[in-house]
Design a protein around this nucleic acid. Sequence first.
DNA 1: TTGTACGCGTTATCAT
DNA 2: ATGATAACGCGTACAA
Lengths: 350, 350
Amino acid sequence: MPEITIKDIARQCGVGVSTVSRAINNHPDINPETKTMIMQVINESGFVPNNSARNLKRTDAKCIAVLVKGITNPFFSNMIKIIEEEIRKKKYTMVLQHVEYYEDEVNVALQLEKEKRLRGVIFLGGIFAHSKEKLGNLHIPYIFTTIGSAAPKSISKTSYSNIAVDDRKESYRMTEYLIGLGHRDIAILTAESEFRSIGQLRLEGYREALKDKKIPVKENLIRSAIEDIEHYSMENGYLTTKRLLEEKIPFTAIYATSDSLAVGACRALKEAGLKIPEDVSVAGFDGIDLGKYYNPSITTMKQPMEDMAYTTIRLLFDIISGKKAHEHIVFEAELIERESTAYIAKGTAH
Amino acid sequence: MPEITIKDIARQCGVGVSTVSRAINNHPDINPETKTMIMQVINESGFVPNNSARNLKRTDAKCIAVLVKGITNPFFSNMIKIIEEEIRKKKYTMVLQHVEYYEDEVNVALQLEKEKRLRGVIFLGGIFAHSKEKLGNLHIPYIFTTIGSAAPKSISKTSYSNIAVDDRKESYRMTEYLIGLGHRDIAILTAESEFRSIGQLRLEGYREALKDKKIPVKENLIRSAIEDIEHYSMENGYLTTKRLLEEKIPFTAIYATSDSLAVGACRALKEAGLKIPEDVSVAGFDGIDLGKYYNPSITTMKQPMEDMAYTTIRLLFDIISGKKAHEHIVFEAELIERESTAYIAKGTAH
DNA sequence: TTGTACGCGTTATCAT
DNA sequence: ATGATAACGCGTACAA
């Protein structure tokens, strides 16, 4: 198949390649007539400039990469939309890449930096477990958003930005809230066992809250998600809760560390003939849309996704333009009480 | 910042660039010792080959592009996972791109074909409304999956593959099912007004079924999704249903043309004090996980996503290797009866 | 087994 | 306003 290039167009138009290039790239120094003529020929021929060659040569790519850890997380969808829109407004382009759980997002960023002449990188999700050396090779500004905020101390805080809620604290608050409703046997559905992962931070918050309230932590109420299936999924919440019920360990509330897990938990409870919140209270985390529309609607700790998204992209642009230095911003989450939680009914324990 | 290139590595190692290239690309003609030496230097230096330059030179990219229309559709997530896995198994790489609703996915494919030396393209979602000329410029095999199956006649069926359910027929079946339950006033929640879109095909099936059963179509029971928000979203189902209720048009069933819409509808009904399915039956379409975990679980027309995904990627590889010609496969959907639908209660109409 | 030199398609520089 | 030409970083004949 004969790949059609800028040279072919130039020949067909009887002009030099530079003129064609000028036409394509909206350069000022070109006769409008020549330009329309060239554009016409291009449209007819179906010529598409080779992006690899462009990126190879170009100095000003005006491109920002967004790397998302995991693909099925609905939590990020809205954030990405906002970020994309802002990037478009600035006449930049965005390259969105999903990174598998086992892939190293920094490697991907390193690649993209060279390939696309990136101006900045946004990491969405994942764990901050990157070596200083590797990050040192990333010569452009990068921001971690929605990532367990505790980064290794060896990495200078001035070399990157971080935007997240305080997962430990907010998890503490949610646990405290459930305790306040009279619950003492609170099962927690958690995912991710990696050190400093969001899952672990939330678990720590739970432990601390119980400890502070002098409620003994029952290890058999701490349930890790099943490994082989998507961690933060409804299915995982469902299966984990089912197992919990089968083991007949008494509890009066379930604190799921994500709303998807909470949904699955609700279903399992319902199938077991338990009423929410009369028999069992269920709380989630994140504040995705679904929680609002679920039945019962689900009490959750809502992360200010829109705010976080806007802040992320604006901060990145400010850093790129030299207006700001790196920042580490902690957002407050909002406890939204909905139908799925209530005061404990006396004498019940399932 | 001094971009480090293959030349720097070569100089540092005291070898020629080709030797470094051979080391990077696992070529056979290289002394193992030289290779390890070079790789060591590379690792220390943090050198990352420039992908643009590579793609520019390379002839055998072994890369397949997956273009997804719209980003927040959970329906595609599972399909993408399967496709990605199969691609990995074949030692190919996958490039996943989300295409906005207003963007032209064929343009994106055209770009990528040149940029990444693609071997094939998979289009997920969207509408088949592409000009013959443009598609003619795509010199590699491409498959449309989950796209309204009625393509313009001007395009030869031998030039592309298509994998989908028969949206009109399956929509007909769903409507028929609801009619079979005794419903006559069936509101339909639909999205997309574009000709030949999935939304329109499903609407056509609805109309036909009513017509065949001699039930007059009430135009005010046909509700289009609100334009400015995500079409197939829970929010849209919720708001649309709310409006429907406010208008006090009597109906005993809602057929939502996607499960997300159905979820929103359920919530709106519940808030209005209506019971599902006692007062109103609700049916969805697609068969996403959520329908199973929702409360009530939602009757749906399940598309065989896994099958469709496997078939798509296998067919593509067969076409690439010359084993097969293009195919047009229609899958059967499966009507899954769940808790949200039931026989009509006599004398009720809301 | 290794090194030299050319070219991939484009943009930028410098003439004209 | 336009054209010739030198890079961009890499892979690969081809020569050594």
